[in-house]
């Protein structure tokens, strides 16, 4: 299916944005192939400061691969990636790691460490990135992070004792504990009931307000997209096929675009 690129006039106008914004992520002509499967053919994408960009697309179109390219979990075959205005291909390993530390990633499954308690899950990134924290400071940060996601009572539990929604929240708390400037959400509401999904969507908005983060949200959940998106792109056949605000895309007469918003 070929879809003409449609960029609405108000693409750059976010719901709660300032008029001039700095671009924090820019992807130019990103390509990625797995075996014979060309997942990303030519991705061009921009994420502005304090913006929530929602990425829609059918399963298997490379949405998760796209955000994994940003954090370095997947290495693109070609293309350019700019983080905070810096070309990642020209950065040395340490400098690149430093830049990537400003990016938080919420995994679809939560990716909680089974062998650690909730407290240890939260302390793990702190100990690895900022080894100088004392016991008191660690406790303070862990408590604050759990309070942010409403999980204070679960501090001494194991991840296996938590529900799906709680696991997502804990994953979010673990990501937020490092105070990232950019958040990448990989299907944050998948597998949750509508009420919990709405809570997570609201949490994403609260986090953005509190920490002024910029976010890319991969989702199939229209309600989540409606609540959180300043701008939406739809990926099809390895390229960003459509771009616009929720209202513009949801009212589109194109049946293919409309199918995402039913």
């Amino acid at each position: 299916m070929h879809i003409d690129l449609m960029i609405s006039e108000d693409t750059q106008t976010a719901k709660n944005s300032s008029p001039v914004r700095t671009c924090v992520i820019e992807m130019r002509n990103i390509k990625k192939t797995f075996g014979k499967n060309e997942v990303l053919k030519n991705i061009n994408l921009v994420l502005n400061e304090q913006e929530n960009l929602v990425v829609l697309g059918k399963s298997g179109t490379g949405k998760s691969v796209l955000i994994k390219c940003i954090v370095g979990l997947v290495v693109p075959d070609s293309g350019e990636l700019f983080l905070f205005g810096q070309d990642t291909s020209t950065l040395r390993k340490n400098a690149l790691e430093e830049v990537r530390r400003k990016i938080g990633f919420l995994f679809q499954s939560g990716a909680l460490y089974d062998s650690m308690s909730v407290r240890e899950n939260l302390e793990f990134p702190l100990r690895r990135q900022s080894g100088e924290y004392g016991r008191e400071k660690l406790n303070e940060l862990v408590t604050e992070s759990l309070q942010n996601v409403g999980l204070s009572e679960a501090i001494d539990k194991n991840p296996s004792e938590l529900s799906g929604g709680m696991r997502k929240r804990l994953g979010l708390a673990r990501t937020l504990i490092l105070k990232p400037e950019i958040m990448l959400y990989d299907e944050p509401t998948t597998g949750l009931d509508p009420i919990t999904a709405r809570e997570i969507s609201n949490l994403i908005l609260d986090i953005q307000k509190k920490y002024n983060t910029s976010s890319i949200i991969i989702t199939h959940d229209v309600q989540c997209a409606k609540l959180t998106a300043n701008r939406i792109i739809v990926i099809n056949e390895g390229v960003c096929a459509v771009e616009g605000t929720f209202d513009v895309l949801a009212s589109s007469e194109d049946p293919w675009i409309g199918s995402f918003f039913e």
């Binding site: 954090v71 370095g72 990716a111 089974d114 990134p125």
Partner: peptide, 17 residues
């Protein structure tokens, strides 16, 4: 392998470990 499947190894890398 189980940590690999559940993306725990990826999560460690992303968190700076």
């Amino acid at each position: 392998a189980s940590m690999n499947v559940t993306e725990q190894i990826d999560a460690m890398q992303v968190s700076g470990a």
